[in-house]
Structures are given as C-alpha cells and as structure tokens.
Amino acid sequence: MTNEQLRLRRMILAALFAAITGVLAQMIIPLPLVPITGQTLAIGLAATILGSRYGTLSILVYLALGAVGLPVFAEMKSGISPLFGPTGGYLVGFIPTAFLIGWYMEKTSFTVKNAIVANIIGMIVTLAFGTVWLKLSAGFEWTTALKGGFYPFLPVGVIKAVLAASIGIGVRKRLVSANLLLPLENNMKQSA
C-alpha cells in the first residue's frame, strides 16, 4: 500500500468518525445545565482507533460541519452559537481531548488498559474545558459550575471511557488486520 493510499484511507476514517460523532451527539440524557450525550464516547473511539493526528482531524471536521450549519451538535443544533454558548467549552475541549488520547496511545501502546487511562484523562480534559467555559459564559461561581458541569459527568464519563477503550481497541485491531490501518510501529514511521 502506498503512502497516498494509506493517507486517503485514514482521511476517510476521520470523516467517518466525524459522522459517527454527529450521530452519537443525538443520544441525549437531559440534565438541568448540560446534557449527557454520546459525543464524548465518539471522541474517545475516534482517538483510540485513529491516534492523535487523524482522531483530532475527525473532531475538527465534526466541529466544522456543525459550524457551517449541519445539525450535528446535540439536540440537532448547528452554527456558531453552540460553540460560543454555555456548552461551547465542551465542544472546544474535544480538540485537545482527541489529541491527548491519541498521543497517549501512540506513546504507550494500543492496549485496553492504556486506552482506559487515556480516555479517563481525555474525559477530565473535556470536563475541565467545559466547566471553565460554563463558569465564564454563564457568570457562575466555581461551586455552581462544578456542580452543574463537572461532578455529574464523572461516573458516566468513566463508563464511556471504558466503553471507548474496549470497543476502540477491538475495532482498531480489526482495521489493522483488514489493512485499513497500520500497526503502531508503522504509524510512527509513516508520520516521521
């Protein structure tokens, strides 16, 4: 497989995960300030499977699709306003989250254990971005922002981190065996 073919396959997978993120964003459990959605599960899956570069690319594509008007954000929202509203910090936080999950996996190994650690770190990054943004945009006190935008999401976040790790590593192994992704050693050589 040539470098161009491999790059095209990775770009197609990144676009596919942008679409998956848009679909999982519509899985919603409503809460008073910020709903629980399937977006963070999709972010973890994308980064666990695709790594830092293409996992992050999938999130950038997802955010761009929503920003230009496709209803891919939670509750079928779109446009710039969700990016700057009270929940915008979570959306913006998806970018460093995807990068850090993928980077951690690339620096260690693509195992379920490492993926769980990486996804829990990613969950905390997303929640931190979202909570700070929620506090600043809504003018909340720190205790209110933490109670509404951080603490309620920890238990569900851990569950989603374990799911993203377990499913992600399984899917990644199948993509590698199907020659759609290269094993870690070859990924590092290709990106050098």
Rank of each mutant, 00 (worst) to 15 (best):
G51P: 14
G51N: 14
S52V: 07
S52W: 15
S52F: 12
S52T: 10
S52K: 15
R53P: 10
Y54R: 07
Y54G: 06
Y54L: 06
G55C: 03
G55M: 04
G55F: 00
T56Q: 06
T56Y: 04
T56C: 04
T56H: 04
S58K: 01
S58M: 05
S58I: 07
I59G: 00
I59R: 00
I59A: 03
I59K: 00
L60G: 13
V61E: 08
V61L: 10
V61Y: 03
V61G: 05
V61P: 08
L63I: 12
L63W: 06
A64W: 07
A64T: 12
L65P: 06
L65R: 02
L65I: 05
A67F: 14
A67L: 13
V68N: 03
V68M: 11
L70F: 15
L70T: 12
L70C: 15
P71K: 11
P71Q: 08
V72P: 04
V72N: 10
V72G: 10
V72A: 11
V72D: 12
F73D: 05
F73Q: 08
A74L: 13
A74H: 11
E75D: 13
E75A: 15
M76V: 06
M76S: 14
M76N: 15
M76G: 13
M76F: 15
S78M: 01
S78C: 02
S78Y: 00
S78I: 06
G79M: 08
G79Y: 08
I80M: 07
S81K: 09
S81F: 03
P82M: 01
L83V: 00
L83I: 08
L83F: 02
L83N: 02
P86N: 05
P86F: 06
P86V: 08
T87P: 03
G88A: 03
G88P: 02
G88W: 01
G88V: 01
Y90P: 09
Y90T: 06
L91I: 11
L91N: 01
L91G: 01
L91D: 00
V92F: 13
V92A: 11
V92I: 12
V92N: 00
F94I: 08
F94T: 01
F94R: 00
F94S: 03
I95R: 00
I95P: 02
T97V: 14
A98P: 05
A98R: 08
F99C: 13
F99R: 07
F99V: 11
L100N: 07
I101T: 12
G102V: 14
W103V: 06
Y104N: 12
Y104K: 11
M105V: 03
M105H: 12
M105E: 14
E106T: 03
E106F: 13
E106K: 14
K107I: 08
K107P: 09
T108Q: 10
T108N: 11
T108S: 15
T108I: 11
T108K: 14
S109E: 07
S109H: 09
S109N: 04
F110L: 07
F110R: 05
F110I: 01
F110D: 09
